[in-house]
Amino acid sequence: MIINNLKLIREKKKISQSELAALLEVSRQTINGIEKNKYNPSLQLALKIAYYLNTPLEDIFQWQ
Rank of each mutant, 00 (worst) to 15 (best):
Q29R: 12
L47A: 14
E25M: 15
K36L: 14
K12D: 11
L45F: 09
D59T: 08
E19H: 10
S42W: 04
K12P: 02
V26E: 05
N54W: 05
K38H: 14
Q29C: 10
W63G: 04
Y52F: 13
Q29T: 09
R10A: 02
K7I: 05
Y51N: 14
I15F: 10
L47Q: 14
I2Y: 12
G33K: 10
Q29W: 14
N32M: 15
I3R: 13
E58G: 13
L47F: 09
A46H: 02
R10V: 03
E58N: 14
I2N: 07
Y39P: 03
L57S: 05
L6S: 03
E19I: 06
K13T: 07
A22Q: 08
L57I: 12
Q29K: 13
I15T: 05
S27A: 07
N4A: 03
T30K: 09
Y51M: 12
I9M: 07
K48L: 08
S42C: 06
R28K: 15
N5L: 04
N40Q: 10
T55M: 08
L8W: 12
N37G: 11
K13G: 05
K12E: 12
E35V: 02
S18H: 12
Q62F: 06
I15C: 06
D59G: 07
Q17E: 06
L8Y: 12
L43D: 06
L24D: 00
K36E: 15
Q64S: 13
E58C: 09
L43V: 13
M1D: 04
T30N: 05
E35D: 02
T30R: 08
S16T: 13
R28G: 10
R10H: 01
W63Y: 06
Y39V: 15
L47K: 15
I34H: 01
T30W: 08
K48Q: 12
R28F: 14
P41E: 01
R10P: 00
I2L: 10
L53F: 08
Q44A: 13
I3M: 09
I2F: 11
A46F: 02
L43I: 13
L8Q: 12
L43F: 12
I49T: 04
N5R: 07
I9Q: 06
I3F: 13
W63K: 05
I3L: 13
N40F: 07
Q62S: 10
I49F: 05
L45D: 04
I60R: 00
Y52E: 09
N54K: 12
K12V: 08
K38I: 15
Y52N: 07
I15Y: 11
I9Y: 12
G33W: 11
L24T: 14
I34Q: 00
A21N: 02
T30H: 10
I34P: 00
I60D: 00
A46W: 05
N32I: 15
E25W: 07
I60Y: 01
K13D: 03
K13C: 08
E11C: 07
I15M: 10
L47D: 08
N37P: 01
T55S: 09
D59H: 13
K48F: 04
K7R: 13
K12I: 11
I31C: 02
E19Y: 07
K36N: 15
F61P: 01
A50E: 04
R28T: 15
V26W: 02
L24C: 10
K12S: 12
A46Y: 03
K48S: 09
R28H: 15
V26S: 04
E35F: 01
I31F: 03
N54S: 11
E19V: 10
K12H: 13
L6N: 00
G33I: 07
G33E: 14
L53K: 00
I9P: 01
L43R: 09
L24A: 10
D59W: 08
L57N: 02
S16G: 07
S42N: 12
N54P: 00
R28N: 15
Q64E: 13
L43E: 10
A21V: 03
K14I: 05
N32D: 15
N5Y: 05
A22Y: 10
Q29L: 13
S18M: 15
Q17R: 08
L57D: 02
D59K: 13
Q17G: 05
Q29S: 11
N40D: 12
N54I: 05
L43Y: 14
Q62W: 06
E35R: 01
L6Y: 00
E58H: 13
Y39I: 15
Y52P: 00
M1S: 06
L8C: 11
S16K: 12
K14M: 11
I15A: 03
Y51E: 10
F61Q: 01
L43G: 07
Q62N: 06
D59M: 10
K48A: 08
I34K: 00
V26N: 02
